[in-house]
Nucleic acid binder design. Sequence first.
DNA 1: GCCTAGGTCCCGTCT
DNA 2: AGACGGGGCCTAGGC
Lengths: 257, 257
Amino acid sequence: MIRQQLLMPSPEDLADFLNRHTRSRDCLVQVAGLAEVTYQGRAASTADVGTYLVVVKQDGSLQIHHPTGIKPMNWQPKTDSITARVDEDVCMLLASRRSPEELVQVVFLEPQMALALELAQAGGFVLRGSEAEMQQTLAEHPELIEPGLRVLNRELMVESGGIDLYARDAQGRYVVVELKRGRATQHAVSQLARYVRSVEGKLPAKAVVRGILAAPSITTPARLELENRGLEFREVSALPQATAAAGGPVAQPSLFD
Amino acid sequence: MIRQQLLMPSPEDLADFLNRHTRSRDCLVQVAGLAEVTYQGRAASTADVGTYLVVVKQDGSLQIHHPTGIKPMNWQPKTDSITARVDEDVCMLLASRRSPEELVQVVFLEPQMALALELAQAGGFVLRGSEAEMQQTLAEHPELIEPGLRVLNRELMVESGGIDLYARDAQGRYVVVELKRGRATQHAVSQLARYVRSVEGKLPAKAVVRGILAAPSITTPARLELENRGLEFREVSALPQATAAAGGPVAQPSLFD
DNA sequence: GCCTAGGTCCCGTCT
DNA sequence: AGACGGGGCCTAGGC
């Protein structure tokens, strides 16, 4: 499982190590130690000399972590080229990609440890409580939004984006439904308004198009904006109160049974 | 620099290791091996048995990586409590937080390696090319947007959000400027329109309020929407064409000299 | 705590 | 490729 581990490697050994294990694309490689990092691309950054943890995954993605925080200090989601070389007696790692053109450069001043790990294939991963799941549930049970609602489309593409649910109400009026898995914000109201306008533009003039924002809750400013624009809110619980019991699995929410 | 390393630890040893080093809050702890992961909180997830890399940083943030991808499979940005215990002859890691109430649980079925690293304090970190920097530059040189423009406020708060730059033009008309460091989308147009409406609502009726979207580029649909709404676009390069030379630092963009 | 908005956002998806 | 929206987004800043 540990493919190889080096302690205090020389620049040459580290460069060899990095080139060999990143090229094979079958293990996760990390280097910890004193380094400098620069990035140039959509933005640009420099990190002074410090102790960082550099991780290169099998797909060539790169992340450079400092001691705290969930997000890496520097990263590269995917790399077109990742190479190490020795320059002026230090090992440098160059990770670049095109589109966008970006380059992350790590200068290892005092590498303390290099480690190559074999991570065998992962098992299945399932996420519940996404907006996509909410959409499916509500498409199958539109009465949870409003009695008499009939769903015509899911993810209907209009010029301004994709309409989560496109429907008709009991009176035959068209309804645009925008879903949010969390608290709805002004951003969601803007989206909904944009979609309603797009639909109105496609229908014969003066056709009434209702807009419904369906979410577990809504911010106060968003509610005001919504009402100003003649749009509506429906409370739809995405993940109803979990009976939080630390350590144990919790019953699935009613909406997702 | 390597505080401690265990190979194939027993459940008891691993639990001790995790509790000791996460509690001290002065090193980065990682465990690699066969594990199962469940998450319950704003959403819920399960990961089947697989080989993962678990990292706990000094601030108690947790990330669980699978073999590929820049983003962790599961994570916890900050934890109120992080504890390991032995249950049914396996070591489990429980990382929880309130607000939002969330729990990540890792069951280590076959831990291969545990490692505690001391990452000394990092050096300074500087990022260039952010929207904030763009805002400062343009506040000091509003003529880059338009001759005769005078900036009245930066980040002016109105009910619908914060206006990047609030200004008056050469004819004395109020101008709302929305900045984007990257290509402007319909979302940006919505924001700008919202701010313009808010400002119009505060000024005497019929006051003319201009809205300018300043960005290096704009999507075609956004441009159409913008023009439909009587708003304007100004090209403002955030990071002008970098003279990309792999390996070497690049001259800073003119906007940020 | 709520709310807004930026991000080198990343990522999937569809045109 | 461009474009759009979701995300357990995370994080910072204002109130």
